[in-house]
Design a protein around this nucleic acid. Structure first.
Lengths: 329, 329
DNA sequence: TTGTATGCGTTATCAC
DNA sequence: GTGATAACGCATACAA
């Protein structure tokens, strides 16, 4: 592969001039610059990234560490990150943790070794691995879930859950259940808390038997929903904590012959493209995922320039999109 | 940040010994090895990736270049790639082209500059940018779409489309239309060809007016479906070329009051988790996306070892999953 | 404005 | 088995 030396030889200049010409240093003679550019093109020269990064002691790479690439919420965040990063010449490395702290730890080590300029992550837990990044001076921004000591971009998910629950109450539902995410995951806990807030505010008893936890990924929600409905005085409505859980819950409702918006009120987190295709269409809490990614990236880029400011918290709002699954019917 | 030198000093050995100890070279005195490991841990030492890559003239990074992270088909491929790569110590860098050849080109340049060990890509077009990779000696494996001169892992999508169309014919549908992807995209053309094959084989006239093209992403399928149905003698069934298009087509059917499996037969490519939630459930052509990624990665890893063999083609089979949207009446 | 020379942190070669 | 040392390709301080 052609090196800066080959280009210098072909252009009849020194490597220093090649470096300056290709990096747009102003003080290079236009004539020489042209020779360098043409030689570089002819040789198909591509600068050696590792060498450049070693010399510069920095890279133009951001790490994005999320728990599930198959979750539309996170892919939307990824698009926001990518668009902003791309615009200023940064590349994005996407990593999957599968909600596994060990895997997360391995990826963080890779990020450190590759000397990425910064990391955007949705931490698996709050007592997080992320300290190692700070020990190595790498800026971090947390998305979706808080991370002590870092900038965070969050959604007021507790309030959103409260509003969604209140919406169900307003529709006339009385025994509202919740298919919650795994306890310990901050967003899951927050949504559950918001759910409880709404019940308390309405003077409705908060019955633990109406709540079931399930893994964010996988089939747990199906069983959880069946279990909720198999008890005496079953819930007449459900708040569902994300779109993966919604799939399982909807399957279960279908098997039980429960028509959403008629036999059971349903609201789920995350607006997915297929929500409006269902019969009846699914009421959702739409999170501004793309914006989360975009804002987080701007914060991270700012920190790459100057990491001295105290951590900030940005809270974006979710929107309840009322469709027919939460009507009462 | 601690360097190999710091570790060497603290352990009272040379940098060469540190390097050997940390890289598991057998001939290191266990006693020294222990001192090195403990010093490294104490200092929080993480090897400098760029320096290592520069010296080794190779990286343990694979590039994965796809057109849309939000498309479940590609995220499933990504998981397959990641699982296999991860198992042998490679990292995966995921890049989005948005079906944009210029963006693809930029990412390929980045891949070359970073000296990735290999690239897995679904090329935007067959006269592709990918030549630059080969010019630089970087192995490539194409997924989903063929790429001249490279290993490819494909689905027999033409035959799958033929089978799906035949299935609709067998159900008694007679004027079968097609919501196709953008012409020029290989998979779109193949699916269209398979659709035509089935019509020819059944002695049914292939009417171009029953075919509409739409972008793989976005709302084009909605308009295409409306247009198809707004003509005299409209199609009584539709083959839909992917899951994004399916969303638009389903919306249009709903607006027109057409019940799938009753007023109109529907088959779409890609089995998505929500297909069975629809009423009626959607008949789909399930592509083995995870396997595509896994197989492609194995091929790529083999080529990283030895890139001398002639290009191979691996063809995986798709499966028609019959659900109610393709029944008749 | 241009060239020379040095060092980034690591691994591998070569002596010992 | 271990240590000194050179080299990977680039960017920059300094000299010219």
């Amino acid at each position: 592969m052609a090196t800066i030396n080959d280009v210098a030889t072909m252009a009849g200049v020194s490597t220093a001039t090649v470096s300056r010409a290709l990096n747009g240093v102003a003080s290079v003679d236009p004539e020489l610059c042209a020779r360098v550019v043409s030689a570089a093109k002819e040789l198909g020269y591509q600068p050696n990234g590792p060498a450049r990064n070693l010399r510069r002691q920095e890279t133009a790479v951001l790490g994005l560490i999320i728990s599930d690439v198959a979750n539309p919420f996170f892919t939307a965040i990824a698009r926001g990150v990518e668009d902003v990063a791309q615009a200023v010449g940064y590349s994005v490395v996407l990593c999957n943790t599968d909600e596994d702290a060990a895997k997360e730890r391995r990826y963080l080590d890779v990020a450190i070794q590759e000397r990425v300029a910064g990391v955007i992550m949705s931490p698996t837990d709050s007592a997080s691995n992320a300290d190692v990044l700070r020990e190595h001076g790498i800026p971090v921004v947390a998305v979706d879930r808080p991370l002590a000591g870092s900038d965070r971009v969050l959604v007021d998910t507790r309030m959103a859950a409260e509003q969604a629950t209140k919406h169900l109450l307003d529709q006339g539902y009385r025994r509202i259940g919740c298919v919650a995410g795994p306890s310990g995951v901050q967003t899951a806990d927050d949504r559950l808390a918001g759910y409880a807030d709404a019940l308390v505010a309405a003077g409705v008893e908060h019955e633990p038997r109406l709540v079931r936890h399930a893994e964010y990924r996988g089939a747990g929600a199906h069983g959880a929903t069946l279990a909720l409905r198999q008890q005496p005085d079953p819930p007449d409505a459900l708040l569902i904590a994300n779109s993966s859980l919604a799939i399982g819950a909807l399957e279960a409702c279908h098997e039980l012959g429960l028509r959403p918006g008629k036999d059971i009120g349903l609201v789920a987190f995350d607006d997915v493209p297929w929500a409006k295709l269902l019969d009846p269409p699914l009421t959702v809490v739409a999170q501004p995922a793309y914006d989360i990614g975009a804002v987080a990236t701007q914060l991270l880029l700012a920190r790459i320039g100057d990491n001295s400011k105290p951590p900030s918290t940005t809270t974006l709002n979710a929107t309840l999109i009322e469709r027919a699954s939460s009507r009462r019917g």
